[in-house]
């Protein structure tokens, strides 16, 4: 007999009867005791989502968040035993969740929070020593073919909404009333030492960094950035990446890093 199959099915489906072979010492209805397990599974997973998506929870309030998360947990229980990895498709779920339809920016706020979790737990990578780049400056004709590799923690978000401002307002960095959620924003998430930083960047920065992530060399990465955003400032963008320790390797060909 496969008792765990019945137990499992009933845990996530409140419409199902509790498993048949349960016993209680006093003959009381085992359903009341089985409810402890149902409750633990659901509420512990909702708690994990609440810990991962605190700004989403603040935006909609705890009651709404927990109800929404409960629907998600039953629909998409974890396929991982590492709960830091749970909820990767929670933003997509939120996007299609009709009761949250009045907050079209909510899914992108969740995407930003997901990038923060990823950045927090991403593999460590030592920043490139700037002297390596300084040495590259001595051969300016090769700079166009220089490839920069970025830290694994780094992530980008291109949003039609003011995700960075919304997130920052919940860190006390600016007044929420001054945020217009409908302003498109681009976000850069990275880990500077041990701290995860969320930075608002311009469109040109986003296009440039995306090109770097795809393995494009400096010259080829700069072109689309300038094409999409004539105000793109390569020096400022590189300085931001350098200061955060986000550049980890540089190389003139794909295989061999310089340092």
């Amino acid at each position: 007999m496969n008792s765990q199959q019945d137990f499992f099915a009933a845990l996530l489906d409140p419409e199902r009867d509790c498993p048949a072979d349960l016993k209680t010492w006093n003959g009381s209805d085992p359903a009341a005791r089985f409810a402890v397990y149902r409750n633990n599974v659901l509420s512990s997973l909702i708690d994990a989502l609440a810990a991962s998506f605190p700004v989403v929870q603040q935006l909609v309030g705890e009651a709404f968040f927990r109800a929404m998360a409960a629907v998600y947990v039953r629909h998409s229980p974890p396929r991982t035993r590492i709960l830091a990895d749970y909820g990767t498709d929670f933003p997509t779920f939120i996007e299609g969740f009709a009761p949250a339809g009045s907050l079209p920016y909510l899914a992108d706020v969740a995407r930003l929070e997901l990038l923060r979790i990823r950045a927090y737990h991403a593999a460590d990578a030592a920043p490139l020593n700037p002297t390596v780049l300084a040495a590259a400056l001595a051969v300016p004709e090769r700079l166009g073919s220089l490839r920069l590799r970025l830290q694994p923690a780094l992530g980008l978000l291109d949003s039609a909404f003011a995700v960075v401002s919304l997130w920052a307002a919940h860190q006390g960095a600016l007044a929420l009333a001054e945020v217009d959620p409908d302003q498109a924003q681009c976000a850069l998430v990275l880990r500077n030492g041990l701290a995860v930083e969320v930075l608002g960047i311009r469109r040109g920065d986003l296009v440039f960094i995306q090109a770097l992530l795809q393995g494009q060399p400096l010259g080829a990465a700069t072109q689309p950035a300038l094409a999409s955003d004539p105000t793109f400032d390569l020096g400022a963008c590189l300085a931001q990446l350098l200061r955060a320790g986000a550049i980890t390797h540089c190389t003139y060909d794909k295989q061999r890093p310089l340092p």
């Binding site: 935006l59 860190q171 009333a177 945020v179 959620p181 302003q183």
Partner: peptide, 28 residues
């Protein structure tokens, strides 16, 4: 939804870039 979202969506707020400049230095 009954959270901080009730305080958002002011149509008179500054542009997206105005918002961004305001907290460039803020850490997590």
């Amino acid at each position: 939804p009954q959270g901080t979202c009730e305080q958002t969506a002011s149509p008179t707020s500054p542009t997206g870039f105005g918002q961004l400049e305001a907290f460039k230095e803020v850490k997590q």
